[in-house]
Design a protein around this nucleic acid. Structure first.
Length: 261
DNA sequence: CCCTATGTTCCCAA
DNA sequence: CTTGGGAACATAGG
């Protein structure tokens, strides 16, 4: 479920609870997550977002990286004895001020302890994608679709299926357009739609279309702003045309054939 | 039973 | 080498 705005929301909320916290213990409830070194007594020094990953920096230089994949959630419990752990709890990080639980029905989420802080990540963050010409340069010799370009985490970090659809709607571009064919003006619109959609979605604390909840169990608000995602057969809010759905890269892809040429 | 699902990775064919 | 399709991972919901 989580794309950049959802992960960013979790990171911001973690930052208001977790700094100067000490790890009391870690409990892996699902062996699929693998094993973890003993982290008891380690402090949390920082919380950063790397694309869709949450990076908890420890006071010994190592980092605990969480990727929530499709259905992973983080839940904060201030007083663990009050909140019983919910169904599908997979991991508990017990801290001095409270605890963080990874809840994940589909069990795709991953957890890893990494030694090197800044690992080689060539991708730009989708909230700070650089200038339009820099994006154009990355796409100009490719025959791939603009949607797959936007969702390629090795090029741009953070965009998933919902926001890719919404960004392309607002940029007025058909998801199947080849990146090599895009003009400078097209790239300018892609860049500006990307930043506008994602920063608005961060302010809205994500899209609660099904089960996304923030660190404290609250829904986001961006589902009210969706123009095309999940709206097959409905009217385009701009031209009144009928929104179409196609399948691209194995994912549902919604767009307005009239507005997105 | 069918289909769908906010992610990633792997294999395969064009 | 590039690209997209499909399956896989595992579970819930329509």
């Amino acid at each position: 479920m989580p794309e950049l705005p959802e992960v960013e929301t979790l990171c911001r909320q973690l930052r208001q609870r977790v700094p100067s916290a000490m790890i009391k213990g870690t409990f892996i409830l699902d062996s699929k997550l693998g094993k973890l070194d003993n982290l008891k007594g380690r402090g949390i020094a920082s919380v950063t977002r790397l694309g869709k990953r949450i990076v908890l920096g420890l006071d010994d230089g190592r980092s605990l990286e969480i990727h929530l994949r499709m259905t992973g959630r983080l839940l904060w419990q201030e007083k663990p004895d009050i909140g019983e752990k919910p169904q599908h709890s997979r991991f508990i990080l017990d801290l001095t001020p409270g605890r963080i639980i990874i809840v994940d029905p589909r069990r795709f989420a991953t957890l890893s302890l990494v030694a090197d802080a800044a690992k080689g990540n060539a991708a730009v963050d989708a909230l700070k994608p650089g200038c339009p010409e820099a994006l154009k340069e990355k796409g100009c010799n490719r025959s791939r679709s603009i949607k797959s370009f936007l969702m390629d985490q090795s090029i741009i970090g953070g965009i998933g299926n919902i926001y890719a659809c919404e960004i392309l709607y607002r940029a007025g571009l058909n998801p199947l357009r080849r990146t090599a064919d895009l003009t400078s003006e097209d790239w300018r619109r892609v860049r500006s739609a990307m930043v506008e959609v994602l920063s608005k979605a961060v302010v809205c604390r994500g899209t609660s279309i099904s089960d996304w909840r923030d660190l404290f169990g609250c829904k986001g608000e961006y589902q009210k702003e969706l123009r095309v995602y999940g709206r097959e057969g409905k009217k385009c809010p701009h031209c009144g045309g009928i929104i179409q759905r196609v399948r691209l890269l194995g994912r549902g892809t919604w767009f307005c054939p009239n507005c997105q040429a």
